[in-house]
Design a protein around this nucleic acid. Structure first.
Length: 107
DNA sequence: AAGATGACCGAGA
DNA sequence: TTCTCGGCCATCT
C-alpha cells in the first residue's frame, strides 16, 4: 500500500476488454475494501494519455458517474461502446452482463 | 491542526 | 421499487 495509485492502476489494467468493474471491486482487489472513494480520486488524477482502461470503471449502480465531469463521462461512454459494452447516453449499463467477476481473464 | 469535500456504498423509509 | 441519510478514508483548504 506504499502507493495506492500503483495498486489501482494494476487492478484496472487487469479488467478485460468489453467488461466493466466497480470502484468497490477495484478497491477490494488492491486490498482496501473500505476505500472506493480513493479509487475514484486516483482515476480523477490520471493523465489523459494514460494506457489504463479507466473508462471500464463504473460505480456499483452500474452507470458512469459524472460528479464534476459530466462532459468527460460522455467520452467514457463512447470509449465503452468502442469496447463493445452497451451503454446509453445516460451512462447506464447492465452489470449482470458486463460486470467483471474478476474470474474471467478474457484477455 | 481542524473542517470540508469527494469519479462511492449500503442500509433505512 | 425509488429516494434519503449516514458512514468510510484520504486529500485539499
Amino acid at each position: 500500500m506504499t502507493d495506492f495509485r500503483e495498486a489501482v492502476c494494476a487492478a484496472v489494467a487487469l479488467v478485460p476488454r468489453g467488461r466493466v468493474a466497480t470502484y468497490r471491486q477495484i478497491a477490494w482487489m488492491v486490498g482496501f475494501p473500505r476505500r472506493p472513494r480513493q479509487v475514484g480520486m486516483v482515476l480523477k488524477g490520471l493523465p489523459e494519455g494514460t494506457d489504463l482502461p479507466w473508462h471500464r470503471i463504473v460505480n456499483a449502480r452500474g452507470y458512469v458517474p459524472s460528479r464534476g465531469r459530466w462532459w468527460g463521462a460522455m467520452v467514457q461512454i463512447e470509449r465503452l461502446r468502442a469496447e463493445g459494452v452497451e451503454v446509453d447516453d445516460a451512462g447506464n449499463l447492465d452489470l449482470s452482463a458486463f460486470g467483471w467477476d474478476g474470474a474471467e481473464p478474457c484477455r
